[in-house]
Simulated assay, not measured.
Amino acid sequence: MKPPPFHYHAPRTEAEALALLAELAPEEGRILAGGQSLVPAMALRVARPSHLIDINGLPGLDRLEVGDGQLRVGPLVRHAMIRRESVPGPLGALLDKVRGHIAHLPIRTRGTVCGSLANADPASEWCLVAATLGGAMLARSMRGDRMIAAEDFFQGFMTTALEPDELLAGLHLPVLPEGTRWGFHEFSRRAGDYAQAASLAVLEMRAGTIAAARIGIGAVEDRPRRLPEAEALLTNRAPTADLLRQAAAEARATLLPTDDDPTRPALAETVIRRALADAAGIELP
């Protein structure tokens, strides 16, 4: 199918792109980066932007930088650029693992991390990572910059705190300390399909006990989020198989699935349990 008619704009600078967005946002102007969600939505007539502002030709927006304890991901960083070799330590290994679960290779090659965050599909792997790790999004407009914490950024199904005239100009993630343990699991019906349930668990271990825990769930509710009840249950305790099962069951009890699929809560409990087991280095039957 062909998309509905639209006006195409190719700014030469970021400032020009922001000015165009400020002018055209009231007329359904949209930013075009990877286009892996927006373009198919246009072809299906689900999205009908009157103007597309293509930022792919802008220099410097594909930077992936580590400094001051943070990883900064620019708006044109493609999924495929997120590799263990690009990011040091446990965070790089975690992101490398997650990247491999995103759709198919052509999409990973073209799609962008920030585009996925702006789309805010609750099944998005990067949305889950941002929510679990306590990331922050850099929103930029002609009015200036502002940082939005992940817990405030995701506001519902494919809904964010971005204003219409704001460009998602970056994702900031905290660099994980050496020795941080993590596990990631998702379930989908076929390779490359959207996840039906996904979980990320990050554990800081100290003298054989869990000093701090971060557990996130995605693809189950209308947005990704952390699971504080399960985190509290694990904190300052030595990980055991029974404790991990108890934490996963506690998390399941707090979930509010967006549909009445009777398998969803069980899937969620399973991926949480498996993510925790990988993070703790415990084999579960």
Rank of each mutant, 00 (worst) to 15 (best):
S199G: 04
A213N: 10
A161S: 14
T209W: 04
A212G: 02
A197K: 04
G179N: 05
F187C: 09
E229M: 09
R225Q: 15
G218L: 03
A219R: 00
R225H: 14
A161D: 15
A207W: 07
A169T: 05
M158K: 15
P164S: 08
D165T: 02
R190Y: 03
A230L: 09
A211S: 12
D222W: 05
L167E: 04
A232L: 09
T235N: 08
G208A: 08
T235S: 12
A191R: 15
M158H: 09
G216Y: 10
Y194A: 08
A201R: 03
G218P: 01
D152H: 15
A195P: 02
G156D: 01
P228I: 08
A241N: 06
L234I: 11
G156T: 12
N236S: 10
P228M: 08
L243G: 06
A195N: 02
T240H: 06
P228A: 10
F154N: 12
A207C: 08
R206H: 13
M205R: 11
R223F: 10
E221N: 12
I215L: 15
S199K: 04
N236M: 02
R226L: 03
A195M: 03
R214T: 02
T209H: 13
G192V: 07
V220S: 01
T209Q: 13
A232V: 05
G208Q: 05
A232C: 02
F154P: 13
A232M: 05
Q155K: 14
D193E: 07
H185A: 10
F154D: 10
L203S: 10
L171K: 07
A230N: 06
E186W: 06
